[in-house]
Amino acid sequence: MHRRTKPTLTWADVTPRDVFMNRRSVIAGLAATGAMTLAGRPADAVSAAPSKFSTDEPKNTFEEITSYNNFYEFGPDKADPKKYSKAMTTDPWSVEIAGLVDKPGTYDLADVMKDQPLEERIYRLRCVEAWSMVIPWIGFELSGLLNRVGVQPGAKYVAFETLYRPDEMRGQRMPILKWPYVEGLRLDEAMHPLTIMATGLYGDEMPNQNGAPIRLVVPWKYGFKSIKSVVKITLTEDEPPTSWNIANPREYGFYSNVNPKVDHARWSQATERRIGGGLFSKKRPTLMFNGYADEVSGLYEGMDLTKDI
């Protein structure tokens, strides 16, 4: 029998989008819990609070951030770090803190991170090679760690050093740079709230090719200042040597702040290409201090940034 029915449902009966989306997230949450018991770890392995310092610009994808890297310890090609960094052992990991501090010593990674509040910091990253990305780092402010170990009055600079382990880091078997990679900051730069030690990205632990398990991120400086896989932090009185400056002092200064007005010796720094735009990607203007001028320009008052590069 065919029964004719009059539709009684109206648009008011449709489940609103946010409600069913919410239901989905509940299901996803349940699934994640299941995954946690199965794989022994939740989908979002690292929980981190949001930060007022985060940009709302569209983020680069995980694939882009983890497939296009400069990490010469694994080879000079952008694809090398992803290919070869799996060989690096990151657990156990310790960081030696030395120099002008009250509590020097070799700290286990868990000890380094102890009591440091993790935040998600979505930062722009501007490479000295005139390309850029937007990366959701997870990390804590370096100042928190330095305050914990106690900076002595004579300290004016912070020196950093990357792991040197040629049998696991194939690029180090070649003299591309003087190994180990070293970097440095002035103490006030290191203590700035934008300066973080990052231990993760995209809600998970740091991938090896991005500098696992712990790296520096200084968003207003060219990317090479943000040293990866840090094993040593030394507080010093004198300006420490830095790797690219040793390799080519004319092209890479100690400060290396992002500055569209000061060109690299071989190319312009006025514009940059945001990664992810494909073959016909347009260039965009580079911002002073990579767009963090309001926060950091005070650090350089009275300095001639065309000379102190």
Binding site: E63, Y68, K78, A79, W131, L279, S281
Partner: peptide
């Protein structure tokens, strides 16, 4: 390859 993602994440420099 550059048009279809075969030249990696940043195809312009690679091409």
């Amino acid at each position: 390859l550059g048009l279809t993602g075969g030249l990696g994440i940043e195809p312009i420099k690679e091409l």
